[in-house]
Design a protein around this nucleic acid. Structure first.
Lengths: 194, 194
DNA sequence: TCTATTATTTAACATTTGTAAAAGGAATCC
DNA sequence: GGATTCCTTTTACAAATGTTAAATAATAGA
């Protein structure tokens, strides 16, 4: 048991940034976690499936993506030490038209969402933890709207580099371009100008 | 008491769309609600203040707005029978650079946020209710990013008219334009073309 | 290593959107 | 009712971004 908790220690350190958990809650949470290793450029979650697992990125890197008129669009990136889920499916129970794909060999901790929601009944502090986690994720999303709508592509590119300095070394520019909402040609022009 | 609950009946009908509440929870919630009437074009919440109240729009209409480089930008609208709050302030405790302004004579039910968060300790079902409310609001926000980033201004305008057919009669076009992320001139061109 | 594939940049042109200024309409206030 | 203010459209031109295609550069596989 001690050993198992150790395996998920990074996840529980992440949780501690939000609130402290009783050992009962930690054990219960630990029991619904599983480890997943995925090589580079493979799907962690396929397009069309309903989101039934929340992932914590232990190491590596992935992106949420989908196809718009046949074009591959990156909705978001998830680096080490963050949670990733397709919330529009997780919270509605509907199939997601988005997938999650690794951009490096990666290791994840999967949290079974149905089991998690059942834990909420017995452990209010677990419900509270995830409430807080998703509240702050919601805030990030609200702030991103502002960034998309009222900053130029050049400003957004510079902002992305500031927030994720390693991204240029780890992510193809085509994904960065679609994440920024512009074409790869347009991103090339911006990079040439800077 | 009976009478007071009746006063907030629309709010509690709204809550029932998410989950059922015990009468104790309803009473506790009712005790932290207050009515607010604001005439047209006045601030319900001023720019710079920290969000300490979540509002339910009983009747009328308002918008969340802020200034970007001196230009008035509408972030969102809230019609009757919806909740409105500046979540980036509500969930972080930081002052908001956004304000809430009425676009018609309006009536609101204010829910004191600090008191609400304290209710969470005694009434897990209240915490759960608001968790669900904000989860779905989060989903809406994720979907809006997609709409902003990957639909043309014309598509977004048409989509807005579909979702809120009354908006043209109730909201000046300049606010609709900034909500769509375009200038008023550009919106005029789109309207002329359609 | 050679080849094939993928990633990135560049160029030319089209389209969309922005900016600034002017003018017409609508609403509001005394 | 007239003046004023605000709202909306139109025009002309500038800037940003999209589209298509071609040219390099980098990477991965046989």
């Amino acid at each position: 048991m001690e050993k198992t908790l150790e395996k998920n220690q990074f996840l529980f350190s992440y949780f501690e940034g939000f609130s402290n958990l009783s050992s009962q809650s930690r054990t219960a949470l630990n029991n619904i976690c599983s480890s997943v290793k995925i090589p580079k450029n493979k799907d962690l979650q396929a397009i069309g499936h309903t989101c039934r697992t929340i992932y914590f990125v232990k190491n590596g890197l992935c992106r949420v993506y989908y196809f718009k008129d046949g074009v591959d669009i990156t909705e978001s990136f998830a680096f080490e030490n963050t949670l990733i889920a397709r919330v529009e499916s997780l919270f509605t129970g509907k199939p997601s038209k988005k997938g999650i794909q690794t951009l490096e060999d990666s290791e994840f901790i999967g949290i079974a969402s149905q089991a998690l929601f059942e834990l909420y009944d017995d452990f209010p502090e677990v419900e509270r933890l995830f409430r807080k986690i998703f509240e702050l994720a919601y805030v990030d999303t609200v702030n991103r709207i502002e960034s998309i709508q009222f900053h130029s592509a050049e400003e957004r590119y510079k902002g992305l580099l500031e927030n994720s300095p390693s991204i240029l070394q780890r992510v193809p520019l085509k994904h960065i371009a679609s994440y920024l909402g512009i074409t790869q040609v347009s991103l090339s022009r911006i990079r040439a100008k800077i």
